[in-house]
Design a protein around this nucleic acid. Sequence first.
DNA 1: ATAGCTGCAAATGCTTTGCAAGGCC
DNA 2: GGCCTTGCAAAGCATTTGCAGCTAT
Lengths: 139, 139
Amino acid sequence: MGQTRTYTRALEQLRSVGLRPTRQRLALAKLLFEQGDRHVTAEQLHGEATDALVKVSLATIYNTLHQFVDAGLLREVVVEPGRSYFDTNTGDHHHFFHESQGDLIDINDNVLERANIPTPPDGTRVSRVDVVIRVRDEE
Amino acid sequence: MGQTRTYTRALEQLRSVGLRPTRQRLALAKLLFEQGDRHVTAEQLHGEATDALVKVSLATIYNTLHQFVDAGLLREVVVEPGRSYFDTNTGDHHHFFHESQGDLIDINDNVLERANIPTPPDGTRVSRVDVVIRVRDEE
DNA sequence: ATAGCTGCAAATGCTTTGCAAGGCC
DNA sequence: GGCCTTGCAAAGCATTTGCAGCTAT
């Protein structure tokens, strides 16, 4: 199993959404999608890339994350003012957010069923439902 | 009904949470709480204060908003990276968020009942549940 | 060849902070 | 008077942008 083989999945993933498989995008896709569901910030991913000896600038991390979001490979989650999380799980699900640790945890159990969603204002349609259950340490 | 009488409610509100009723805080409380439920950003409130000929610096707006949040008079709502909304409705309720207009609308119909909330991770307890239904213009 | 990427550094936008001057009790 | 507040300007962060050089097709 050579080094080239390692990137097959990421390569196909990028092709399928029409993004050029550059060295940076391949490496980031690999970091993001080949270890199960995860939630990362731009800064974190940048750190991981650096640790993996992949040279990528922070600007490229941001560009790439947003391209992945636009392509439907990632979902952006906003839980704190001034910081975005990117979730590799793009399916319909909610989150626990640990307020002091700044940690996101998926809730796969889908609490809010479609049927329960209130009718949106006239002239608009629902684009997404975000449910965040904020938790803190028990005293 | 003199000018002094006008500030009675705001004054009591501030006293009740132990904040000194300064000129700025009184004016902001009046703008925030005397026109029904509203959602404002710091910048917006600053504009309103200026329009009302109340001199307040943006730094004081931020300080005051956070003091009001800590005192339980306001609730902070995070829907966009890099911008905070402050909601005068501190009760249990959810929001529609109009993505292109950046507009928040209360949903008083409480969709997510307590009973439906999944059990939080061990050692933590639920501090709040945020539900944001993102909507966009119908094409 | 060329349209698309990348990276740097500078710019942006919101928010916070340090500290001197001012105001409330 | 003494402590809390305010305001300005500067600093802080996360994120975005402009643009010259590089790269996949």
